[in-house]
Amino acid sequence: MTDGQPIPVIIDCDTGVDDALALLFAVRHPALDVRAITCVAGNTDVDGVVRNTLTVLEQAGAGDIPVARGAERPLIETVRTARHVHGQDGMGDLGLPAPARVPADVDAVTLLRREILASPRPVTLIPMAPLTNIALLLRTHPEVTRNIERIVFMGGAVATGNATPVAEFNVWHDPEAAAVLLTAGVPITMYGLDVFKKVLVPADEVQRLRASAEPRLRLAGELLAHRDPATSGDPTPIVDRRPRPGESEVHQGTREQPLVDVALGVDAERYVRLWLKAVE
């Protein structure tokens, strides 16, 4: 918060274990005003993503945030979920209760457009999933970019992927949608897989959360205890870190200008403290 007002944000997610932890943080942090959440197929099927998202919001005491169902498959590719990582239900098969509420009566693209244009301040759009919903929004309603402050997305990798040696899951799942996002014409910040692999909550903190009587803290602990068992040729963003132009530019023209800001590191210990403080 730079002016004492929380930042208006809209989150697009494919709620599995990781996105659930991010949602718990986002809805509890006082500097963020979560105006809407949209769901897309990814970690599990889109109906499972909607269910998981609503369940997390109820557990976090944030049941009034509108949630909408989005794309059930990528723009071109078939659905390729990550149930082998996140469990059959996308949430570590924890047996969580079904949510009491239902999603909004509009689709994700409609909700995104409505909330972006209705916001009195430009919003920060936070995609944490395959980028299908965002691509459909940008192609169908390009006027929304006038009220988007920045897009901050979780996707890609600077060094090593998880879907393939070079491809991170969110971009690999719908590379054509990622290409649309990267040419959105608004400021973009990319937080890739490399950064988040460095953030680990200590085991004693995990056990303390699991033993809590507070539902959201117990959920956080159970999700943190679920370990990623997967280290599984598709395109992914390539981060150009060359110090000078190469032969391609010398022989074929000028070097492309950077499209996005890319996070290369994280203060992991500080971030863990921040996450715990916000969730608790």
Rank of each mutant, 00 (worst) to 15 (best):
L117V: 13
P120C: 06
D267C: 01
G192W: 00
T189D: 03
L21R: 15
A167G: 09
D3Y: 06
A230Y: 14
P8Y: 08
A268K: 03
H141P: 01
Q257N: 08
I126E: 07
I116N: 09
A135I: 07
V50E: 15
V27I: 07
G156L: 06
V195W: 00
R83G: 05
N43E: 13
A108Y: 02
R255H: 03
L274W: 08
Y191T: 10
V158E: 05
C39Y: 09
V260A: 15
V49L: 14
A179R: 15
F25Y: 15
A268E: 03
R69I: 07
G92V: 10
D14F: 12
Q88D: 12
R210H: 05
L182M: 15
V186T: 09
A129N: 14
G185Q: 01
L23H: 09
L182N: 06
A68N: 03
V186D: 04
S119R: 03
D47K: 13
R73A: 15
L264I: 04
R241W: 03
Y191P: 00
P127L: 06
P229E: 08
D204N: 11
F196N: 01
V279N: 10
Y191E: 00
A177D: 03
A203F: 11
S248M: 07
R150I: 02
T183A: 14
I151L: 10
A159L: 05
L23A: 07
Q5D: 06
V272G: 08
A31Q: 15
K198L: 08
G161M: 03
G155A: 10
D234T: 11
I151N: 12
A225P: 03
P258Q: 11
L112Y: 06
P74W: 05
P202L: 01
V49W: 14
V106R: 14
A60C: 04
I76H: 15
V102H: 14
T110H: 12
V239F: 07
V46S: 10
V158K: 06
T164F: 04
V250S: 11
N52Y: 12
A268V: 02
G161L: 03
N133M: 11
V239H: 02
T44F: 11
F153C: 13
V144M: 06
G246Q: 04
T183P: 00
T254M: 07
D194K: 00
A225W: 10
E58F: 11
L193W: 00
R227H: 13
V180S: 05
L131Q: 14
H86T: 12
I126C: 15
A129P: 08
H141K: 02
L125Q: 12
V85Q: 05
V9I: 15
L274C: 09
D234S: 10
V85M: 10
E280Q: 13
A22E: 10
Y271E: 08
G4V: 04
W172P: 01
R208F: 01
S212R: 03
I7L: 15
L24F: 07
E214Y: 01
P66D: 05
D261V: 09
Q5A: 12
I65P: 04
R139D: 13
L259V: 10
R114Y: 01
A129K: 04
D3R: 12
A230V: 12
L259M: 14
D105Y: 02
H84G: 12
L96A: 09
G265W: 09
L182G: 01
P175L: 01
M1S: 14
P127Q: 08
T236W: 03
L112V: 08
G61I: 03
G233M: 06
L111T: 02
